[in-house]
Design a protein around this nucleic acid. Structure first.
Lengths: 233, 233
DNA sequence: GTAGAATCGGAGCGTAGCCTCCGGTTATGA
DNA sequence: TCATAACCGGAGGCTACGCTCCGATTCTAC
């Protein structure tokens, strides 16, 4: 299946805010890099972001290096592992989401906040496929959260869900596992086949099934009696 | 992403009922195989079925050959390509589903029939991971149905859906694309992390969102205020 | 300007997986 | 029983990808 992060080894800063880890005598800690090294690091991060947004985790390192106009060696000097690079990008993406989920949990209307957040999450998946890969690979497995950060995300969503349930807006019998599974599933569907409107529809459907009250989230107007042409070459 | 079937080339029979294709002078058509060849073919099919059920499409050919107590050459003599082997297994799995969907479309209660069928589909995914892989890889892309057979399946589900909608049981604004996307998503979540009860819950939730009337599909009894322990190592 | 440390970059190693090739083996029909 | 067509099987070719290694290059402190 989708190859994925196995360990979180890293040297130097990951270019992401917070979460420094001065553990076990870092080989070459926050020593300030030579200007060329700095420039290359930025380039790598940019290239990786662009490529992983489109192609997900599966983009080869060589391609990233090429796009960054850098040798593979340089990539590996900055990120000891492809996974580490992936992790760095992921953290940068997930952290704002965690923050958003946490503040949403304190919203006046947790129900709306929940739905809004779920929508945002799905859009994020579409904008950055690697995130969807990560979610699909580990998002469902709550007990073995592979990434500390995605554990944070799940914890945050979990309490958001709880609040929304306490507010009587989300069905009380829905679990965070349910939500994660649905999100993971939704996130996995290829953006190529899932244009923004279609994605919105699916998110709306999922939310419909979670909400206690009315089911009005699906945009009205388009009547759709089973798509007109399908397959058959 | 998941490597997948690109073309449907095949020699000889695929071991599946129907659908013979006597096109372009088959190199060695239905000539009756030597007994050892026949035995090996059966073994390969069995081994592949077992392994692909658990590991999906990603199981190496060598492993299949080993399990079948046969050389890789023998595998490739029977199925010119890994994809062809995969396709053969897939057809055997999907065909009954197509039949079921078609007859369900003529049920007295298309609404129930639809829900029942969707449930069956999901169980099938769990029992045979390769099917889920196939669904996740091509199920969402209705216009370019990679497999003729999965095109059949989608067509069948499509008309089942239409009937259920005409009967007023399924929301009229739901499309076959919606259904496929949800199914594909659900099917993708790893069986390891998605035990049968959890899967049932998710299917129920999805169905809830599709049905016009009440929402009672989720089994009652278990109150679940956001799973107790999650992640955080 | 220069020494030398830091960095670069890409050839190439190792692994994995799909598939081919062909010498050896075996079933089959006369 | 024997000739031979059919079949077996696994060594190895090929490709792709992650990652390492080390000579060449570039920056920086003096």
């Amino acid at each position: 299946m989708v190859p994925f992060v196995n360990a979180v080894r890293m040297t130097m800063s990951t270019g992401t805010t917070g979460r420094a880890q001065p553990a076990a005598a870092p080989p070459m800690a926050e020593r300030h890099l030579r200007v060329d090294a700095q420039r290359n690091r930025v380039r790598i991060l940019e290239a990786a972001t662009e490529l992983m947004a489109t192609h997900g985790i599966d983009v080869p390192i060589d391609e990233i290096a090429q796009r960054a106009q850098v040798g593979v060696g340089t990539v590996y000097r900055n990120f000891p592992t492809k996974d580490a690079l992936f992790e760095a990008l992921l953290m940068a993406r997930i952290e704002p989401l965690v923050t958003a989920a946490r503040s949403a949990a304190h919203s006046d209307d947790p129900g709306d906040a929940f739905v809004t957040f779920v929508r945002r999450l799905c859009n994020e998946f579409a904008d950055f496929k690697a995130l969807a890969d990560a979610m699909a690979a580990s998002g469902v497995d709550l007990s073995v959260a592979k990434h500390e950060i995605s554990g944070d995300l799940i914890a945050a969503v979990s309490s958001l869900l709880l609040r929304a349930q306490q507010a009587g807006r989300i069905r009380p019998d829905v679990t965070i596992t349910d939500v994660s599974a649905m999100m993971a599933g939704l996130s996995h569907t290829d953006p190529l086949f899932m244009d923004p409107p279609q994605r919105q529809r699916c998110v709306a459907l999922v939310c419909d099934s979670l909400l206690v009250g009315a089911r009005s989230l699906l945009p009205q107007g388009e009547m759709a009696a089973s798509s007109p042409e399908h397959g058959r070459r």
